[in-house]
Simulated assay, not measured.
Amino acid sequence: MANTKEIKSHIESVKDTRKITNAMYLIASTKLRKARSELDRTRPYFDALQGEIKRIFRSADDVDSRYFYPPQGAPPLDGTYGCLVITADKGLAGAYNQNVIKEAQRMLSEHPDTKLFVVGEYGRHFFAQHSIPIEHSFLYTAQNPTMERAREISSILLDRYDRGEFAKIFIIYTDMENSLSSAAHCVRLLPFHRAYFRTDTVEKAVAEPFEFVPSVAAVLDNIMQSYISGFIYSALIDSFCSEQNARMTAMDAANRNAEKLLGELSLQYNRVRQAAITQEITEVSAGARAQRSKHRKEA
């Protein structure tokens, strides 16, 4: 049986671990609030972009754009796919990274020639460890998602798409559905379905047709580049929020386990201490009886 000194050492170790998990919980909570406020601050701009795209399709539904399927429908597109995979820079976030990796593996099993563009050290390490080639790795993006970095990612992906190297572009990220759950999603980023920007609401008819300079297609393509950057930025923020939420959940579970372990160790410590005290009392009593017996014999 462990002595009181060993048990006390275990208790102090668990208390130190609990302090660390509490600190990590608070840090994740702060990062989560900050990321959400950044997304809320930029959301109106991209909502306005979406509104302008809808307006363009109301004015010229048959406009041709490389970022959209043609008006008559979505033909099957053969060719290489590009896939942006958003992971974290580190673990300690439950199944957050594993769920994203599973989606990426499913994508690769269905389309083996898919080119991977990876955000996050965890993803880079996993694919390198499993000898899965990475087309491009974006450094220092997972922990600090910004609009500038989203534009950088968008620029690289769009350049490859515009040159015809990719038939489709997908993005695998984690969406925090609510404060209790999140899920990894594989979403087609390009090309878009036109129906995505159509609305069923009845709107006021346009009195005079809009004038697009230099052309409807040029205006639409220009807006779409900004919209895609916003889509990627939103995915980076959503993933970052999901990571912090998963980290908070993991730290909360660790805290509960630490509390349970502390209770068990404290109980064990008290039992061992009480046993030691009882043993000491027994030895003192036995010694006292021996002394009394000796004195009686001498008398």
Rank of each mutant, 00 (worst) to 15 (best):
I7W: 06
A23Y: 08
I27G: 03
A28P: 09
S29R: 13
K34E: 15
A35P: 04
R36E: 15
L39R: 12
L39N: 09
Y45R: 07
Q50Y: 04
E52T: 00
S59K: 04
A60M: 02
D61A: 06
R66N: 08
Y67P: 05
Y67F: 15
F68A: 01
P76K: 08
G82S: 05
L84M: 02
I86K: 03
T87F: 02
D89R: 04
D89E: 15
G91R: 11
L92C: 03
G94D: 09
G94S: 12
Y96L: 14
R106P: 00
S109V: 00
S109T: 02
S109D: 11
E110D: 09
D113T: 13
K115Q: 12
F117E: 03
F117D: 03
G120Y: 06
H125A: 15
F126E: 14
A128I: 13
H130K: 14
I132P: 06
T141M: 10
Q143M: 10
R151A: 02
I153D: 01
K168H: 09
I169G: 04
F170W: 10
I171H: 01
I172C: 01
T174D: 05
S179D: 15
L180K: 15
P191G: 06
H193F: 10
A195W: 07
V202M: 06
V216Y: 05
V219T: 14
D221Y: 11
Y227Q: 07
I228F: 02
I228M: 04
F231S: 06
C241P: 00
C241M: 15
E243I: 05
Q244W: 00
A246V: 01
T249L: 08
A250H: 11
A253Q: 11
R256N: 10
N257C: 04
K260R: 12
L262G: 02
N270Q: 11
R273C: 03
Q274L: 11
S285N: 10
R292M: 14
R296D: 10
R296P: 00
